Computed example of a mutant assay.
Amino acid sequence: MKQVKKSLLAVAACTALALSLSSCSGGSAKTAPKNAAGDSTVRLMVGGLDKQIYLPVMLAKNLGYFKAQGINAVISDEPAGVDAETDMLAGQQDAVVGFYDHNIDLQSKGKSTESVVQLLQAPGEVEMVRSDEASSITSPAAFKGKKLGVTGLGSSTNFLTEYLESRGGLKNSDATSVSVGAGSTFVAAIKNKQIDAGMTTEPTISVLQAQHLAKPMIDMRTVAGTKAALGGTYPASCLYMTTAYIQKNPQVVQKMVNAFVQTLHWIGTHSAAQITAKMPASYYAGVGKGVYTTALANEKAMFSPDGLMPSDGPSTVLKVLSAFDPTVKGHKVDLSKTFTNQYVQKAY
């Protein structure tokens, strides 16, 4: 009896593993269900919903663009993009708004996902150095022996941090990446000296500066700053899904892209103050509405004007990941399968 029970458990375990691998490879997907109003339900996860780099998600919802397209967007939040990615691959989410670089990393691991609309043309990330370390840590070459904050291990901030280390002539083992999340947890990590420096976004950057806790060392809030730091255009936040989901739900994908393209146009034709007015008050509670608005005005150019993938973007991201990521370095990656412009082109 015990032997039979063990065999059944083994079969169940193997079945679960097979289903997991199928899901991760993008081999299966379901048709998007509809709610009582007839809207297609899309479970959308964001790796830090209140970050300004992901602002288009809540803006699209508050402007009513999802609803107008017949989309019931069920939005949830994770502090790090890698966690959102994991949930989508496990079938718990239909789509992710996160950094494009995950699509390249995932393809090298045998998983098929694609960016369908590009929301940022620059990462919006800044490497902040703790104020008492600012005089000694003036470049990535000084990261040796230091603890560097990232939103999560395997996250895009982790990718970028490790690339900066390699550009500074260091090995990844020369510094320690520490998962500290974003917002208040990142600020606490700086304040309590758990990290010496770290990569974060607005409005956390402004909070750190207002409290004199940290100073910016590398600024990637603009295309020019990003090219200086990384050697090329680095497309960041995007809407991505498994290839299987896209193939199963092309009309739903088109409607999602339509909503985001409308949102990008709205951002491009409105002021930072007008955009801030559409955000929940909780988004700027920790820093103040004025500081939040100023921070947004300073980095507003990071948003894509049209949702299209920049022509030199994928190659730059591949170059960055190939410098340190063992799953990408030396592996053949078909960049044309990591994104598509077809839905954005049809949105006009």
Results as ranks from 00 to 15, higher is better:
10 A>D: 07
11 V>Y: 08
12 A>D: 05
15 T>P: 00
16 A>W: 11
19 L>F: 13
19 L>Q: 08
21 L>N: 07
23 S>I: 02
24 C>W: 13
24 C>N: 08
24 C>Y: 13
24 C>P: 00
25 S>Q: 14
25 S>V: 11
26 G>P: 07
27 G>R: 07
28 S>D: 05
28 S>G: 07
30 K>P: 01
32 A>I: 08
32 A>F: 07
32 A>G: 05
33 P>R: 07
33 P>W: 08
34 K>M: 12
35 N>G: 14
35 N>R: 10
36 A>L: 14
37 A>M: 09
37 A>I: 10
38 G>M: 13
38 G>T: 14
40 S>G: 14
40 S>V: 15
41 T>Y: 11
42 V>G: 14
42 V>D: 14
45 M>N: 13
46 V>Y: 14
46 V>K: 10
46 V>I: 15
49 L>H: 11
49 L>W: 08
49 L>A: 05
51 K>L: 15
51 K>N: 13
53 I>L: 13
56 P>D: 10
58 M>A: 06
58 M>G: 02
60 A>G: 08
61 K>E: 15
62 N>R: 09
62 N>A: 12
65 Y>V: 06
68 A>M: 08
68 A>Y: 13
69 Q>M: 13
70 G>I: 11
71 I>G: 04
72 N>P: 00
76 S>K: 03
77 D>H: 10
77 D>C: 04
79 P>R: 04
80 A>L: 09
80 A>G: 13
83 D>L: 15
85 E>D: 15
86 T>W: 14
86 T>H: 15
87 D>P: 01
88 M>D: 06
90 A>I: 03
91 G>I: 09
92 Q>T: 02
93 Q>I: 02
94 D>C: 03
95 A>S: 06
96 V>C: 07
98 G>T: 05
100 Y>M: 04
100 Y>I: 01
101 D>E: 09
101 D>T: 13
102 H>K: 00
103 N>Q: 05
106 L>G: 00
106 L>N: 06
107 Q>W: 06
108 S>P: 01
109 K>G: 03
109 K>F: 02
110 G>E: 07
110 G>P: 08
111 K>C: 08
112 S>I: 03
112 S>M: 13
114 E>D: 04
114 E>W: 01
115 S>V: 12
117 V>Y: 03
118 Q>H: 02
118 Q>I: 12
119 L>V: 09
120 L>D: 03
120 L>H: 00
121 Q>H: 04
121 Q>C: 01
122 A>W: 02
122 A>P: 01
123 P>I: 06
125 E>A: 15
126 V>R: 02
127 E>F: 15
129 V>L: 03
129 V>W: 03
129 V>Y: 03
130 R>N: 02
130 R>P: 01
130 R>Y: 09
130 R>H: 07
130 R>S: 08
130 R>V: 06
131 S>Y: 06
131 S>A: 14
133 E>K: 06
133 E>R: 04
134 A>D: 04
135 S>C: 05
137 I>S: 05
137 I>V: 10
137 I>F: 06
139 S>R: 05
140 P>L: 10
140 P>Q: 09
140 P>C: 11
145 G>R: 10
146 K>C: 12
148 L>R: 03
148 L>P: 01
149 G>I: 07
150 V>D: 00
151 T>S: 07
